[in-house]
Design a protein around this nucleic acid. Structure first.
Lengths: 222, 222
DNA sequence: ACCTGAACACCGTTCAAGT
DNA sequence: ACCTGAACACCGTTCAAGT
C-alpha cells in the first residue's frame, strides 16, 4: 500500500508572498487612497516584490478586483435578523446590501467590471427571491423582481458615487448646475419650477422610499 | 461712432482643427472600436495632429467624453409623440431614454464619469416630472420619483453592459455560472430551485415591466 | 492664437532567465 | 514553483518653444 496523505512534495523554491497577502495589501491601498491608486506596480512595491510576482497569485488586475470585492463582502456583509413578514424581509435584505455597497465607494469600478455575485451576497438574494415568492409571485416573476431591485440598487450606487466624485476636486459649477441656471421656463416649466430645490432634493437619501414603491408595484395584482 | 460688428481681429495663427472636428473624430473611433480605444494620442494621430493640439479645443479627456455624450444625445434622442395619459407618458419618456442609452454601450464609462444631464435629455426629465405631478404627486415627490426611475434605468444599463462585456472574450464559465452550479440547496433552496432557469430569466428584457411596477408603486396612495 | 517636440511620470502584461 | 529584470507597447498631461 502506498503511503497516504504524505505532504505533496513541493518542487522549486518556496513561495514568499501569498494570494492572501496580495489581497490584503491591495485592500489597504484601496481603503487608504482609493481604487484608482491601486496599480500592479504600486502593489508590488508595497508588498516588497516585483509586479510580475503578483501574476503568480492572481490572473490579472480584474481578478484582483473581484477578489477584493469578495473579501469585502465576506468581512462586512453579516446576516442580520430579518423581519418575518415577507414583504418587509425583501425590503430589509435589499437595504442591507445597499448599505454595505454605499459604504464602499470604490465598488463602482468593480460593479462595472464584473457582475456582482459575491458568494456572501447570495443569502440576501435568496431572502429577496423567497420573500417575493411568499408574497404570491410565481418563481419566474420573483427572479425578475429581484433583477429590478438589483438594477435600482446598483443604479443608486453608481449615480451617487459619480456625483460624489465630482464634488471633491472642483469649485466651478457642475454641468448640471449650469444646465439648471440656463433653464428656459416656457419650454421646461416643471424643471424651472423645482430648479431651486433640485440640489437639496437630490441630496436626500430616498433609497428606501423608492425601494418600497418598487416592491409595492412588483407585488400589486396584475 | 466706432465701427460695429467688425470681425474680431484674430491675432496669431489660424486654427487648423476645430472642437467639432475633435468630437466628430472621437465619435468615429468610439463607434468603430469602442470607448476603450479612444485615447488622446490615438485621436491626435487620426486627426493628423499632435496630442497637445487637442488640449486647445477640449479641457481634458473627461470633457471630451461629456461632449461625446451630448453629441450622441443631440443626434439620436428625438422627441416622440408621447401618450396624453400622464402615467403612460412617464413610462414612455423613461423607456425612450432607456432605449437610446441601451443602443450605446460605451455610455457606461461616461455615466460613471459624470452625471448624465445632456441638454437634449432634459425634455424627457420634464415629461417624467410633469407626468408624476399630473398624477397627483407633490412636486418634491415627483422629483424623488424621477430619481428612482433614473436609478433603475441607469442600473439596468450598467448591469447589462457589464454582463455583455464578459461574454465576448471568454469561453470559461463566468463567476456567476460557477456560483450557481456550486449552490447548496439546503442553505439556499429558492436559488437552487431556479438555478437552471436563472440565465434565461435574466436574459429576458423586463425593463418596461419593472418600470411599470416602480411607477405604479410611486403613484400608489401612501 | 494655435500648434509642436520633448519630456515627465506613469500604466498592464509578456518573455526569458535565474534560483 | 516561484521570483526577477528587462522590455514592449502604451497612457494623460505639462512645459517651453516655435510660427
Amino acid at each position: 500500500m502506498p503511503q497516504t496523505s504524505a505532504p505533496r512534495k513541493t518542487l522549486g523554491r518556496p513561495p514568499r508572498i501569498s494570494r492572501e497577502e496580495v489581497v490584503t495589501t491591495a485592500r489597504r491601498i484601496v481603503d487608504a487612497e482609493g481604487v484608482h491608486r491601486l496599480t500592479m506596480r504600486r502593489l508590488a512595491t508595497e508588498i516588497g516584490s516585483t509586479p510580475m510576482a503578483l501574476y503568480h497569485h492572481v490572473r490579472n488586475k480584474e481578478e484582483l478586483l473581484v477578489l477584493l470585492l469578495d473579501d469585502y463582502a465576506a468581512r462586512t456583509l453579516h446576516r442580520p435578523e430579518l423581519p418575518a413578514q415577507p414583504r418587509e424581509r425583501v425590503i430589509a435584505a435589499a437595504a442591507t446590501i445597499h448599505e454595505a455597497l454605499a459604504a464602499c465607494p470604490w465598488i463602482v469600478e468593480v460593479l462595472t467590471a464584473d457582475d456582482l455575485m459575491a458568494t456572501s451576497a447570495l443569502w440576501f438574494v435568496e431572502q429577496i427571491v423567497d420573500g417575493l415568492i411568499e408574497c404570491g409571485l410565481p418563481s419566474e416573476r420573483a427572479v425578475h423582481g429581484y433583477r429590478a431591485i438589483w438594477y435600482y440598487t446598483a443604479g443608486e450606487i453608481v449615480v451617487r458615487a459619480t456625483a460624489g466624485r465630482r464634488r471633491t476636486d472642483d469649485t466651478r459649477p457642475t454641468y448640471r448646475e449650469q444646465v439648471f441656471t440656463d433653464l428656459d421656463p416656457t419650454e421646461l416649466p416643471r424643471l424651472a419650477q423645482v430648479a431651486d430645490h433640485w440640489s437639496s432634493l437630490t441630496a436626500e437619501d430616498t433609497y428606501v422610499d423608492g425601494l418600497r414603491a418598487l416592491v409595492d408595484g412588483l407585488l400589486a395584482p396584475r
